[in-house]
């Protein structure tokens, strides 16, 4: 069964992929660009790869410099996430995403958060503001 949820475009793009959930905020600089593995100590995704995932997390964090650098290196190595689903957009993450052409949405229906599980296959249409769990 396919369910559709409304969301709000932060950075445009349409993409399909598998969900990876993070309860912690994320700094892309503390992800190994060669492997896509999170290296931040005590992070809920420590040791896991975010490569090719649609990443669900609350918010970006980290200095105004490194978020873009981290994201760019992951993009160049092809080990970055496919898209981001966030709760709290901040200028650094938003500007970095727009510049790197990474699809990002926020304001997703609360229903989505209650249903979504790791590994769910999702179609994300950031441009038109909707999201399907397949």
């Amino acid at each position: 069964m396919t369910e559709t949820f409304a969301c709000h475009k932060v950075s445009e793009g349409i993409i399909e992929g598998d969900i990876l959930l993070s309860s912690d905020d994320l700094c892309f600089y503390l992800v190994d660009p060669k492997t896509g593995v999170v290296i931040e100590k005590n992070h809920s995704l420590e040791g896991q790869s975010i490569a090719g995932k649609i990443l669900v997390f609350p918010s970006g964090k980290g200095s105004s410099v490194v978020q873009a650098d981290g994201m760019y290196q992951l993009k160049m190595s092809g080990k970055g996430p496919k898209a981001l689903i966030i709760k709290y957009p901040d200028t650094v993450l938003v500007a970095s995403s727009i510049i790197m052409e990474m699809p990002v949405v926020d304001k997703v229906d609360e229903q989505f958060y209650q249903q979504v599980k790791n590994g769910d296959h999702v179609l994300l249409d950031a441009t038109n503001g909707h999201l399907q769990i397949k």
Partner: peptide
């Protein structure tokens, strides 16, 4: 932009900036 700068500008001087990225 610069993580030590934005809080200083906003808090200590009472000038206004968002937490800009370098870009």
């Amino acid at each position: 932009s610069e993580s030590s700068a934005t809080p200083f500008i906003n808090s200590v001087y009472g000038a206004r900036t968002n937490r800009e990225s370098a870009q």
